[in-house]
Computed example of a mutant assay.
Amino acid sequence: MFSLVLSREITDDESAILRDAGCADAVFATDSLPTNADVTVTKLDFDDTVSPSLAEAIESALAAVKQVPDLSVPGLTVPAVPKAADADSEVLVGEVVASETTTA
């Protein structure tokens, strides 16, 4: 799950371009620019469960944005995800064992 904040509000035609370029499952919403609340922008929220990794999903979304002239991504939000405890893992305490050397 991640969000892209675009540099401006997009048109319906630009929205169609983004959807065709790989953002079909994104939720499009109007928002304000984080650095200037007076500027209206479009925000895309992604919950990609198809891409092999989060990095690949983000790269795909950024590549789609490049398909629209004069559009950029001034903001990317990736919520922190706590590491899940692995029930099968355990911490082992060990000791250093001196190695024996042999001569032939």
Score class of each variant (00 low, 15 high):
85 A>C: 09
87 A>N: 14
62 L>A: 08
59 E>H: 13
83 K>I: 08
57 A>C: 08
70 D>A: 10
83 K>V: 03
17 I>E: 11
40 T>I: 03
59 E>C: 11
38 D>W: 00
71 L>E: 00
27 V>F: 04
102 T>F: 15
19 R>D: 02
55 A>N: 13
87 A>E: 15
4 L>M: 13
45 D>T: 06
23 C>T: 13
16 A>T: 10
60 S>N: 10
11 T>Q: 00
38 D>Q: 06
90 E>S: 13
49 T>F: 09
85 A>F: 14
97 V>C: 02
3 S>E: 08
35 T>L: 07
18 L>S: 09
34 P>L: 05
43 K>C: 12
94 G>V: 15
95 E>P: 01
95 E>W: 09
30 T>R: 05
26 A>G: 06
71 L>C: 03
101 T>M: 10
95 E>K: 02
33 L>R: 00
68 V>C: 04
80 A>T: 01
99 S>P: 12
16 A>R: 11
78 V>N: 10
42 T>V: 04
88 D>V: 09
20 D>K: 11
80 A>H: 01
61 A>V: 10
43 K>R: 14
100 E>V: 15
72 S>H: 05
28 F>M: 01
94 G>Q: 06
91 V>E: 13
61 A>N: 11
24 A>V: 11
55 A>S: 13
21 A>M: 09
45 D>M: 09
